[in-house]
Amino acid sequence: MADDRAVEEPRQPAAEGVALSEPPKGGALSQAWLVLVMATFFGAALAGVEHKLGPVIAMNKLNETILQVPSLVPGAVETTPDMESAHGKNVFRALDENGRLVGWVVQGRGQGFADRIEVLIGLDASVATITGLFVLDQKETPGLGDNITTRAFRDRFAGIGTDVTLVAQNTTTNREAGVIQALSGATISSSAVCTIVNQTVNEVKEPLAEAARAASVVRGDR
């Protein structure tokens, strides 16, 4: 049986070559109508799927965010979503067991090497220091860029002041200077995470620090 195939195989490409060498008949539309119809149909189908599943996926991410809050802000035991303090940003208040504000968790997103990266950034109450980082969604290169999700990489961000601009470099991490040790083979993914953190922190720094001051005045903490 194997011998039969060996004889047959060289014939097939030749036969196909003859068919392909004939110039395609008809205009562009008569050639491509099937592709156009299918693309339209599939586009609509995918929009329908996204419409149906989008909220479920968003809820999964929200649940994961809530689970991650205690590991992102030291001393936090519970969290409440806060959509007012920084407009247009998903912000979560991290509260200790007495309900006191101990920090913030902010969702940030930006373009990575392959696709959009979504992160959660933990900040202390006065938004002076980054307390933690978690990667919520990414599709970076397996084995290289996807190491941004590892604890070893994420821990490089904890303890850095929000007044410095983060850069990813091929050196050791220097928290005072805002230098993050880039992952080997994944400088773009590492830089992308730094850029997302910089942008997000800059956007929420002022409004959240203000909200934290207001909260402490109301409670009479100071």
Binding site: E16, A19, L20, P24, Q31, A32, L34, V35, M38
Partner: peptide, 10 residues
């Protein structure tokens, strides 16, 4: 309905 030269695209 497949056209030989567009089949991979489909």
């Amino acid at each position: 309905l497949l056209k030989p030269h567009l089949r991979i695209l489909v």
